[in-house]
Amino acid sequence: MRRDGGGAMAVSRGGRAWPLRSRGVGRSASSVGDWRAALVFLTPWLLGMVLLTALPMIGSAVLSFTNYDLLSVPRWVGTANYQRLLTRDARYLHSLEVTTVYVLVSVPLSVTVALIIAVSLSATTRLANFFRGVFYLPSLLGGSVAIGVLWRQLFGSDGLVNAVLGVFGAEGTSWIGDPRYALSTLILLHVWQFGAPMVIFLAGVRQIPKEVVEATIMDGANPVQRFFRITLPLLSPLILFNLVMQTITAFQAFVPAYVISDGTGGPVDSTLFYTLYLYLEGFRNFRMGYAMAMAWILLFIIGAFTALAFWASRFWVHYES
């Protein structure tokens, strides 16, 4: 089982690869030779898909119905793991709550920031280019351990944030040590990495025809009206895309919480992300079957959110063609 959400990995990989396979099959229907050639070309992907994705997924699905401590033989327990998770494990439900808050706050926030920055930096001046690069930098550094460590230093009790606050006479606290603020620092870290959605929005803003923008100027729309009535609706397919992608990654967030809480999810479980709890159960408490049941529930949660987003998109996303 992968810590970073093996289930969702399988979804995205399968989605990308499937058309490739069906195309290969369709073209090769004429002769055996074509079939063979197609198989040869497909083998690397098939091997990867079967060995690294399909088999582990099937394995984890089966093991999620067992008690398995990595050392002894798995013992079949039926749906007991799922029942316990959904009804009796308060810590699990808490981790679900923490993660949901994290997703619901950080995703809209980061997508909004990305959109605003992209629209304001859409000019092609040299200065705008420079700032685009600067704003994209955090996304390159990404959710790495180093950034997690850096964040700890920034928001620790003797960190830079408090030093700056001290200059203004305000007294800070240990932001990551205080259960009231620890999750907020993680949300901030996520929002800070708005570069990837920003780049996608930038491409979208550039796609809006110049004459359409000029038509709004002639029609008397001010920049705010132009943003809400023209830019926003025309970017709506990209907003949907970014929301879905950000939601998937946010549900799977692990590294920042692990680093900041020293792998505990503390203080007082305030940063106990879903995947962190999954990791603790699987690799600290050796309840691998239980952890795998969690992974499968997460896969369904992400699937449900994605399906919901696509269903709701019909009411607000405008496709041009």
Binding site: E211, V212, A215, T216, H318
Partner: peptide, 13 residues
């Protein structure tokens, strides 16, 4: 003044 553009510049949505 009103303007009619070469590409029509209609609001697609």
């Amino acid at each position: 003044i009103a303007m009619v553009f070469q590409s029509y510049a209609l609001y697609p949505h």
